[in-house]
Computed example of a mutant assay.
Amino acid sequence: MKIIFILSSLLFCVALGAKPTETTFGQVSVEVNTHVVQLEFADTYELRSQGLMYRKSLCAQCGMLFYYNQSKTGSMWMRNTFIPLDVAFIRKDGVITDISAMQPHDESITASSEEVLYAWEMNQGWFKRNGIAVGDTVTIKE
């Protein structure tokens, strides 16, 4: 019964757009072309749901890697997200299938064109500035 109350309260707060408590993410290293980047790692449903929401800024080399647990059509939205982001969807074999720009507070769905295992978010324009494109292969070191 206590669990139902807690879950109901959390859902109510989310529905109202309330900011949840601070979430702690793990870290993961990602390598593509000549770039190695340390990212926050969202590898559970709860962490993927929180993502980069409520952040007012993101350092130049900061980002987040979302792990879906199994290959599927990846999808993202920007509810409660204040930072313009790009998302790169990554297949199980590490190949980037799509890179899409996303705007703050846009609740439309950005989806992958293929089944993917990961989604990688960075500041908007980061992939282009660093010469990273669809078809490049990413190595993920957990």
Rank of each mutant, 00 (worst) to 15 (best):
R55C: 05
K92P: 01
N80H: 15
T110R: 13
E40T: 09
C13K: 11
N69R: 08
V37G: 00
I109F: 12
G94Q: 02
E115I: 04
I90G: 01
L117A: 09
R91Y: 05
C13H: 10
I83C: 07
G51S: 03
F41D: 05
S75W: 01
G131Q: 08
V138D: 00
S9V: 08
L85S: 15
A42S: 07
K92F: 00
E40F: 10
V116R: 00
C13E: 12
R55I: 11
G131E: 06
P84R: 05
S8V: 10
G131T: 02
P104R: 05
K56T: 13
P20W: 07
F127D: 02
N69K: 13
T110D: 10
M78A: 08
L7V: 15
Y118I: 00
R48S: 02
T24Y: 07
I4M: 06
Y45P: 10
I4Y: 09
R91D: 14
A42K: 06
W126Y: 15
G63E: 04
V30M: 05
I96Q: 00
D86L: 04
V87T: 12
S100M: 15
F127H: 10
P84S: 11
Q70C: 09
F127V: 06
N80S: 13
S75F: 02
Y68R: 03
L58D: 03
M78Q: 07
E107S: 10
A88M: 02
H105M: 14
M76V: 05
M102H: 07
I4A: 15
K92A: 14
Q50D: 06
A18M: 14
C62H: 13
M1L: 13
C62Y: 11
L58E: 06
D93M: 10
T44M: 04
G125D: 05
G17K: 04
Q61F: 06
K141N: 11
T110A: 11
V37L: 07
Y54L: 08
I96T: 04
